[in-house]
């Protein structure tokens, strides 16, 4: 903490009154920002300043503020979740910035993620993809088998766990030059496809989830690999390849 200091920054933030309004980038000046504060605390500080000035505060998504809920977003200086890799915006700290910096803050840009207000986007497209097949059907009428009763190779369990680490924040879509959601869908398909419980419905799952993904208006994957770099949870491109395999298997069945 001893190295913390205060910096003055300029902010360029996307402001949009509501889903239908035409938005624009607005410039704000914010002084005395502690480098020990998190990026979201900096936005809180800005909002206090705006409220004191009787102006509309900036709307942005946040919840757990410890990098596991997937709620925070923000395209910061041209990168999803800011300059760090392997972190969410709430894990980004102002020590990454210098006095006098101008910081661009924009919402996720995707046809499938329409802006609700300012920096808040509607990510329910991900929910609908999950609902299309991202589950296993289990009879829960009192005789469910303990999950550990089914032996699973350690390697598969680890890979499924890595895929399941996806928090559905949408950084992959935001950073992809094509606005493709394939890293998200690849992770969600993989986390089930790797496990015996998920194999039962594997074919229908991948076909339905991919169909829903296409219907939502996400772009096509061209394997640039940007999603893997920007993903706060380090979801690997291997999951997209696995989805491609699963889809081919299911298609020719």
């Amino acid at each position: 903490m001893s190295s913390a200091k205060n910096i003055n920054i300029n902010l360029k933030i996307w402001r949009q009154k509501n889903a239908k309004a035409k938005g624009s980038m607005e410039t704000y000046k914010l002084d005395n920002v502690s480098t020990a504060s998190s990026f979201l605390e900096m936005l809180d500080q800005l909002n206090e300043q705006l409220i004191n000035d009787k102006k509309e505060p900036v709307a942005f998504d946040h919840d757990c503020r410890e990098g596991i809920c997937g709620m925070c977003s923000l395209y910061i200086n041209g990168r999803a979740h800011g300059p760090d890799t392997g972190t969410t915006t709430c894990q980004l700290h102002m020590r990454k910035f210098n006095d006098g910096d101008t910081i661009f803050i924009e919402p996720w840009r995707s046809k499938a993620f329409p802006v609700v207000k300012d920096l808040v986007v509607d990510r329910s497209a991900f929910d609908r993809i999950q609902q299309a097949g991202g589950f296993v059907s289990v009879n829960t009428s009192g005789n469910t088998i303990d999950a550990n009763a089914t032996p699973i190779p350690k390697q598969d369990a680890d890979k499924a766990f890595e895929a399941a680490a996806c928090i559905g924040c949408g950084a992959c879509v935001a950073t992809c030059k094509n606005g493709s959601a394939m890293l998200f869908v690849g992770a969600k398909v993989s986390q089930y496809a790797l496990l015996p419980q998920g194999k039962v419905e594997a074919s229908q799952r991948v076909l339905n989830m991919v169909r829903q993904m296409d219907e939502e208006g996400f772009g096509n994957c061209t394997n640039t690999g940007a999603c893997e770099v920007e993903c706060p949870k380090g979801i690997s491109l291997e999951n997209i390849a696995r989805m491609n395999r699963e889809f081919l298997k299911a298609s020719i069945k």
């Binding site: 200086n77 990168r79 840009r109 772009g219 940007a226």
Partner: peptide
């Protein structure tokens, strides 16, 4: 799939 682009984008960092 992306009707509105980014004002600032830094793709050389990731691809």
């Amino acid at each position: 799939a992306r009707p509105i682009g980014y004002a600032k984008n830094n793709p050389s960092k990731n691809s």
